[in-house]
């Protein structure tokens, strides 16, 4: 079977799973459904000849699932019953998004066909990458040699976001500690 048909099937599965993830009430089920979407993306990367990305997406999906399950499972919280305003908002949103989809279909005609990209800059990397950097993996030579500056910025973003998450969590645990100490005293 050609690649396009495989990807069509996987994308349909992913759309169904993402709608399920948003509409199911149970928290664990919706987290598992989002896992289906992420692993579908990983499978698509494998079909599109990007094994680097498939490995990274697979591992990060597992990690995100563990974070979500650890943070949200077992929290008892009260379901919000949907008001009239909420139902109207949902209907209006669905109508608007559907009309956006219908009007934007003709835009996709302007894009290059699937499997025939316009490629100018990257041809240089393919021709000279192995000779200039000495790396057999050309993706690796792009991220760490030609565009290492991008990677530096990306490490900074990762560092900052993790630091933000840590500062939020650490304030909380310190408050807990102080509370328990004052109760003991």
């Amino acid at each position: 079977m050609p690649v396009e048909i495989w990807i069509t099937y996987i994308l349909i599965l992913m759309i169904i799973a993402s709608i399920a993830a948003l509409e199911i009430e149970d928290v664990l089920s919706s987290i598992v459904a989002i896992g289906v979407v992420g692993l579908g993306v990983s499978l698509c990367f494998l079909f599109l000849q990007a094994p680097d990305l498939a490995i990274v997406q697979f591992l990060f999906e597992i990690f995100a699932l563990i974070i979500l399950v650890k943070a949200f499972l077992g929290k008892e919280y009260h379901k919000t019953e949907s008001t009239k305003l909420n139902i109207i908002l949902t209907i209006v949103t669905i109508i608007t998004l559907t009309s956006i989809l219908i009007f934007s279909v003709s835009v996709f005609d302007l894009l290059p066909d699937f499997g025939k990209p316009y490629m100018n800059t990257a041809q240089y990397y393919l021709d000279n990458g192995a000779r200039e950097t000495g790396a057999a993996n050309l993706v690796s030579s792009v991220i760490l040699d030609y565009r290492a500056y991008d990677t530096l910025g990306e490490i900074t973003v990762l560092f900052t976001s993790i630091l933000g998450a840590l500062s939020i969590l650490r304030i909380r645990s310190q408050m807990k500690k102080e509370n328990s100490e004052s109760q003991n005293a």
């Binding site: 990305l53 050309l138 991220i143």
Partner: peptide
């Protein structure tokens, strides 16, 4: 080969 540049961008 396929284009390595978008793969590098998506990896980050």
């Amino acid at each position: 080969m396929v284009d390595p540049l978008p793969q590098a961008l998506v990896l980050t």
